[in-house]
Design a protein around this nucleic acid. Structure first.
Lengths: 144, 144
DNA sequence: CCCATATAGTTATTATGCTAACTAATTGGA
DNA sequence: TCCAATTAGTTAGCATAATAACTATATGGG
């Protein structure tokens, strides 16, 4: 997250980057502005999901299962490949979702006993469906 | 941070937001694209600073002191007002910087004994000056 | 003057991220 | 066939974020 409240002005950037000829202060300021807007949006999304008892990672993990076109379940490794987070973080997030009863093992399991196919429970699907419109509203209302 | 590797396509967004008439799929996709680019950039910046032994918050706290036009020191409360982080997080970040010898109490202290004016040590100023060009390079090279 | 209130900063607790190292199961090449 | 290497997932330990609650100091209205 990018916490800087007041961005530097172009003159300040120009002063600092005077010996970096290929760095354009105007471009830097654009990037900083978007970085700040993205961080504020992410905080809003996290707060929205938190109010409903989920972290963003938990929500996105559910989304990956829901989004899969021709299947109703995914393994942890498949979810990890679609998200960009480390294995232990995903492991904890999935454990949390299972504790809440929002995901569970799918009815049909693969032969490979290292992995478990995971699907949303009816409760999980309901919760996800409830949260999705608000999630898109947050994205829609973002100042970017 | 926003971890989704593959963004949904517009049709998928349109399907989900069909009953949200004011939400434009094109706009949502733009926001998601920028959110993802911002997250990748933030990870790169954090990795860059981490390689040099600082967190982003520690680096930005130093920047706030350096950036102050007419003074060489700030109190923790003044730094907190310029960054957008909670007091305990700032407290720990400043403690870390002091442990590393990069900041220290300023020579002149205010009468109010609750607060301490903090300034960069010569070592801290040198470290900051070394890191700043690379920091702007990261911003410059960002895909946004 | 003095106590209620506000402000500066720290400590305690919780959640989430990371890397490294671990166990268990599978696979593949000599 | 069998053991080395790979893959799935978890555990351990650390850093950083948050909120709530704490101590210490300062301020201001009666």
């Amino acid at each position: 997250m990018f916490f800087l409240k007041e961005l530097p002005d172009e003159d300040m950037i120009a002063g600092v980057t005077a010996d970096l000829p290929d760095v354009s202060p105007t471009h830097i300021l654009t990037v900083l502005t978007r970085l700040r807007a993205a961080s504020v949006l992410l905080r809003n999304i996290e707060a929205y999901l938190r109010r409903h008892g989920l972290s963003q990672t938990q929500f996105l993990a559910m989304m990956m299962i829901v989004r899969e076109p021709d299947r109703a379940s995914l393994s942890a490794a498949e979810i990890a490949a679609r998200l960009d987070i480390s294995k232990p973080v995903l492991s904890k997030a999935l454990g949390s979702l299972a504790d809440k009863g929002l995901i569970g093992p799918a009815t049909s399991q693969p032969a490979d006993r290292r992995q478990t196919q995971l699907s949303l429970t009816p409760d999980g699907q309901r919760r996800f469906d409830q949260l999705l419109p608000g999630y898109f509203q947050q994205l829609h209302a973002a100042d970017m």
